[in-house]
Amino acid sequence: EAHFQVQLEQLRSMGFLNREANLQALIATGGDVDAAVEKLRQS
């Protein structure tokens, strides 16, 4: 989780407030914030 701290903060600042969902999306996308946003929008 600490590995994705910067990305988690970016997602939070973009309005994605579900930390667990954000973390799962980042893990699934290897930390790619843009891909994580797409994944979160689809769910």
Rank of each mutant, 00 (worst) to 15 (best):
residue 13 S to G: 11
residue 29 T to M: 06
residue 15 G to Q: 07
residue 37 V to C: 15
residue 27 I to W: 06
residue 29 T to K: 07
residue 36 A to I: 01
residue 36 A to E: 00
residue 32 D to A: 05
residue 23 L to C: 14
residue 13 S to E: 12
residue 42 Q to H: 06
residue 39 K to G: 09
residue 1 E to M: 08
residue 16 F to Q: 07
residue 33 V to L: 10
residue 10 Q to R: 08
residue 23 L to V: 08
residue 22 N to K: 02
residue 16 F to N: 14
residue 33 V to E: 03
residue 23 L to T: 13
residue 42 Q to A: 13
residue 18 N to R: 05
residue 13 S to D: 14
residue 27 I to Y: 04
residue 19 R to Q: 06
residue 12 R to K: 14
residue 21 A to D: 15
residue 40 L to A: 02
residue 35 A to V: 08
residue 39 K to N: 00
residue 19 R to Y: 15
residue 4 F to T: 07
residue 11 L to D: 01
residue 13 S to N: 12
residue 32 D to Q: 13
residue 26 L to D: 00
residue 26 L to P: 00
residue 26 L to E: 00
residue 41 R to A: 12
residue 30 G to P: 00
residue 11 L to A: 01
residue 43 S to A: 03
residue 21 A to E: 15
residue 4 F to G: 01
residue 41 R to L: 03
residue 29 T to S: 12
residue 3 H to Q: 12
residue 31 G to M: 02
residue 4 F to M: 14
residue 5 Q to E: 13
residue 22 N to T: 06
residue 4 F to D: 02
residue 3 H to Y: 15
residue 20 E to T: 12
residue 17 L to R: 07
residue 23 L to W: 08
residue 43 S to E: 10
residue 28 A to H: 06
residue 25 A to E: 13
residue 2 A to V: 06
residue 38 E to W: 03
residue 39 K to L: 10
residue 39 K to D: 14
residue 15 G to W: 01
residue 30 G to L: 06
residue 10 Q to E: 09
residue 9 E to T: 04
residue 1 E to Y: 04
residue 30 G to Y: 06
residue 43 S to Y: 02
residue 22 N to I: 01
residue 2 A to I: 10
residue 40 L to G: 01
residue 42 Q to I: 06
residue 26 L to V: 08
residue 6 V to K: 13
residue 14 M to H: 06
residue 2 A to S: 13
residue 42 Q to C: 02
residue 26 L to T: 02
residue 35 A to E: 11
residue 21 A to W: 05
residue 38 E to G: 09
residue 6 V to F: 06
residue 5 Q to W: 04
residue 28 A to M: 05
residue 20 E to D: 13
residue 6 V to E: 14
residue 1 E to G: 03
residue 40 L to W: 01
residue 26 L to N: 01
residue 34 D to E: 14
residue 20 E to G: 07
residue 26 L to W: 00
residue 7 Q to M: 06
residue 39 K to E: 12
residue 35 A to F: 04
residue 12 R to V: 07
residue 12 R to S: 13
residue 41 R to M: 04
residue 30 G to W: 02
residue 17 L to P: 11
residue 41 R to E: 13
residue 1 E to Q: 06
residue 40 L to E: 01
residue 40 L to H: 11
residue 13 S to P: 03
residue 39 K to V: 07
residue 20 E to A: 06
residue 5 Q to I: 09
residue 21 A to Y: 01
residue 31 G to A: 05
residue 25 A to V: 09
residue 32 D to E: 11
residue 9 E to K: 05
residue 32 D to T: 08
residue 39 K to P: 05
residue 2 A to C: 06
residue 27 I to M: 07
residue 9 E to G: 10
residue 4 F to C: 03
residue 43 S to F: 02
residue 28 A to W: 02
residue 15 G to M: 02
residue 29 T to H: 11
residue 32 D to H: 07
residue 6 V to Q: 15
residue 9 E to W: 01
residue 33 V to K: 12
residue 26 L to F: 00
residue 29 T to F: 12
residue 23 L to K: 11
residue 5 Q to G: 08
residue 20 E to W: 02
residue 22 N to R: 02
residue 25 A to Y: 01
residue 7 Q to T: 04
residue 17 L to A: 08
residue 30 G to F: 04
residue 42 Q to K: 11
residue 14 M to E: 08
residue 25 A to D: 01
residue 2 A to M: 08
residue 25 A to M: 14
residue 20 E to L: 05
residue 11 L to H: 00
residue 11 L to G: 00
residue 25 A to G: 04
residue 36 A to C: 08
residue 27 I to V: 12
residue 43 S to V: 15
residue 13 S to V: 12
residue 16 F to C: 14
residue 38 E to K: 14
residue 4 F to W: 06
residue 30 G to H: 08
residue 12 R to P: 02
residue 7 Q to G: 03
residue 18 N to C: 11
residue 7 Q to A: 05
residue 11 L to C: 00
residue 17 L to W: 09
residue 34 D to M: 07
residue 13 S to M: 11
residue 38 E to L: 10
residue 24 Q to W: 02
residue 43 S to R: 15
residue 38 E to T: 12
residue 29 T to Y: 06
residue 23 L to S: 10
residue 28 A to R: 05
residue 25 A to H: 13
residue 17 L to Q: 15
residue 17 L to C: 15
residue 29 T to N: 15
residue 2 A to P: 03
residue 27 I to F: 06
residue 40 L to N: 01
residue 24 Q to L: 06
residue 34 D to I: 05
residue 19 R to E: 13
residue 36 A to Y: 01
residue 40 L to M: 14
residue 2 A to Y: 14
residue 39 K to Q: 10
residue 41 R to F: 03
residue 2 A to G: 11
residue 9 E to Y: 02
residue 30 G to V: 08
residue 17 L to F: 15
residue 10 Q to F: 01
residue 22 N to V: 04
residue 9 E to H: 07
residue 26 L to A: 01
residue 37 V to H: 08
residue 10 Q to H: 03
